[in-house]
Design a protein around this nucleic acid. Structure first.
Lengths: 110, 110
DNA sequence: TCTATTTATTGCAATGTTACGATGAATAAA
DNA sequence: TTTATTCATCGTAACATTGCAATAAATAGA
């Protein structure tokens, strides 16, 4: 099949999965970390920074943008990308509670 | 290609991506939430709880187990699964700092 | 206008993922 | 021992993802 049966799950579960999916590739993690580190925008330096071809980076940026985690600003022939802080905070508000649930004190097994 | 060029990225980036990937399907999110809610183990009730076929659930459980997030215990013909609390804490220690980075106050663009 | 630069898009090959039916393996109960 | 129950594995179809070469689109500068 290759595609998830989203209708079986809650809105919350699907949303968590979608965010997690976009973090599920090291290039996208690296892009985000770079954008955080620079504290401001970057452009196609990402292609040099990370060792992937330009179309590949462009595609990863598109997915990050599609989830609203970054935004781009055209500056001449270059495009400047940065973290979308408001959306990042919304994402955190959904992801962190999932990861940070109270751990069960297992009763009988395990 | 279909597979990530992991050699381009840091250990940390690859690890974050691997954890995120396993959270990147709503069925696995649902399984984990269920295991958290019950505060103890579950078995194949997951098949009834979630609407997927038994082999599909079994496969998702295998992936969660492969990342160490859950562990299983055979009890007769049944298998009891639960959160692996120690490994879950290790996962949190890697994922939360990534999600919870200080947000840049964007300077010139965006 | 023409050229160079930068980024996005298209098309495609290789591989991964998801889902399930069929089947196997293991144990419990009759 | 036979049968039923439960879960894992295998095989496979449908689809998604990753990566890049080729190319298009947009703008800046000559």
């Amino acid at each position: 099949m290759g595609l998830a049966k989203t209708e079986l799950f809650t809105e919350e579960q699907n949303e968590i999965a979608l965010f997690a999916k976009v973090f599920g590739h090291p290039a996208r993690v690296a892009i985000l970390q770079h954008l955080f580190k620079l504290n401001s925008c970057v452009c196609g330096d990402l292609v040099d920074e990370i060792g992937l071809a330009q179309p590949t980076i462009s595609q990863h940026l598109k997915e990050l943008k599609g989830m609203g985690l970054i935004k781009g600003n055209v500056e001449g022939t270059r495009v400047c990308y940065c973290i979308d802080t408001a959306n990042w905070m919304d994402m955190k508000a959904k992801m962190i509670p999932f990861l940070d649930q109270d751990l069960p004190t297992n009763t009988h097994c395990c």
